[in-house]
């Protein structure tokens, strides 16, 4: 009788504490609801890049993908671009690809920008924001790290330093 009471009470308290704890956890990472987050499979997408080439995410299976969402008007995006270009040159040989998805801008603007920073990685143009929406991108820049199996291993919305980019590259290197 006494045992039963103890277990009943403990179980009820435990369930409630876990439920409340999980609610708080989710409320802190509120973005996690519909958004693509760590551990998810990266949804496939098809876009045309600045040079008119078709870019499909699935084609990069086997490589690490540094998926960056950006805009020419966004200062932090602009800051991290030269670092990304430099590390792209280093890590491309090691099987890491950068896809810098531009969020709904004109070819004219993006072309000027890409020329100015001599960007050589593919810039898929998300004109209709389809990919941006599917990945639940709020503020830009947002970077999503995809490993060689197509799984999301990281997501950040901070403006990246070069060191940070290097550590990310190391993380997704196949």
């Amino acid at each position: 009788m006494k045992k039963k009471r103890f277990w009943f009470r403990s179980a009820l308290l435990a369930i409630l504490v876990i439920a409340i704890g999980y609610t708080i956890y989710n409320s802190i990472y509120e973005d996690s609801g519909t958004y693509i987050k760590k551990g998810d499979k990266a949804p496939n997408f098809v876009l045309t890049d600045l040079n008119g080439n078709r870019v499909e995410l699935e084609d990069y299976r086997g490589k690490g993908v540094f998926l960056n969402f950006w805009g020419t008007w966004c200062k932090p995006c602009e800051r991290e671009m030269p670092y990304m270009q430099r590390q792209y040159e280093t890590y491309k040989k090691q099987g890491v690809e950068i896809l810098a998805v531009n969020v709904s801008e004109t070819n004219v603007s993006v072309k000027n920008f890409a020329d100015r920073y001599r960007l050589s990685f593919p810039i898929p143009m998300d004109k209709q924001r389809e990919v941006t929406k599917a990945y639940g991108i709020g503020p830009i820049p947002t970077t999503i790290l995809i490993d060689k199996n197509g799984k999301v291993v990281g997501r950040t919305s901070e403006s990246l330093s070069e060191e940070k980019i290097i550590s990310f590259m190391e993380k997704i290197k196949p």
Partner: peptide, 13 residues
């Protein structure tokens, strides 16, 4: 109200 915080239960965009 608690379930609302669980993934997939709620979309607001």
């Amino acid at each position: 109200g608690m379930l609302r915080f669980f993934p997939g239960m709620y979309v607001d965009d």
